[in-house]
Design a protein around this nucleic acid. Sequence first.
RNA 1: AUGCAUGAUAGC
Length: 419
Amino acid sequence: ADTYTCLIYPLCKAREADKAKNILQEMKFRGFRGSTRLHNAVICVLCKSKKVNDAVGIYREMLREEEENIPDIVTYSHLIQGMCKLKMVDEASRLREEMKQRGKMMDVVSYNVLIHALCVTNRVDVARGLLEEMVMNSLTPTVVTYTALLDGLSKGGKVDEALKFLRRMIERDCLPSVVTYNSLVNGFCKLNRMDEASSLLAEMSNRGCMPDIFTYTPLIWGFCKKGKLNDGLRLMEELSHKNLVADVVTYSVIIDGLCKESRLDEASSFMEEMREKDCLPNVVTFNSLIEGYLKAGKIHAAVEQFDKMAKLGCTPDAFTYSTLLNGFCKMGKLNEACHMLNEMSAKGLVPGIVAFTCVMDGLSKEGRIQEAEDLLDEMLRMKCEPTVYTYNTLMNGLCIANRIEDAQKLLAEKKFSPN
RNA sequence: AUGCAUGAUAGC
């Protein structure tokens, strides 16, 4: 049994979910029981690999074995979190009921997991109910509890409420952490309320929460979106003066900001800086660069970046393709765009709904409405679910072609919710 | 060392 234990833990740590699961099963087949902890470790890694169903399978086995390995609060936390990450919210609440029936009391961490899950699925109000419930059960919320809620508010744009929440935490002697402040800073940045975001940056340092790259990255993002690139660049310097190390996300943010303003030389010097610092660019970094070059009409440079991605073992994603196709279309290179779309289908690559919509828009603006309509059928065939953008694009095209009635017909079919 | 909170890119 010890042998198995020694095998399984490292596998879990290495995220080898399937192997861990198989070895656990082999162990039990040979008559060793293992422990709840060991089962939990496997359930944990299965959940993190999005194999929640397998994780549930192990949980059910644990129940069947009766007395041997009794699922504990940690088992439930893992499962609930895994389910919530896959938006299986109903299953998660069912499990919570099951947990209650088995006499397992929710503890602080399991409440935190649930509260977080509710927040990320836009149900902050329900989450707040849970906060009250936990207090009634004489559990003391921690900084993690409050931060999860505050982040939910912040992401929903309710930053003023989130700020009140922060003040209340402090009153209740629960000290905010750097994560708490970061959530708030991010919220203000998303709304482009950069003055308030900046004062929070000052406040957090004063309170002993040292800003990190999770603080700076949203600030840089916000300044870029506001067209205050120079403030963004200033913060890039400031963070290194504070001995913080920008990572690929931070670099991608500033590179994207620069690309969107067509400051391509500066963007590529950040690429150079990344190379010097052994920070590898990822697909997001490349997507931003590709977009930048295309918007500046530099197709060749864009394609060069696309090739460079492959060399770095970086797989193009739906963003890459839509960026490329959109760029082609906007430059009037419609035939190239269509060609690329066909090639992708031939290779079994799925361009994604946005890429289709870009080409559809290009076609309809060139008066090639029939081809645009055909594209809708192809999308459906490829199981790319059209969005309201897709239909807006098509309706726009139909109107351009003076087929107003057909556009109205499309609207009347109610295949989408108009905006 | 069995579980919890924060950051980036594309289309009308």
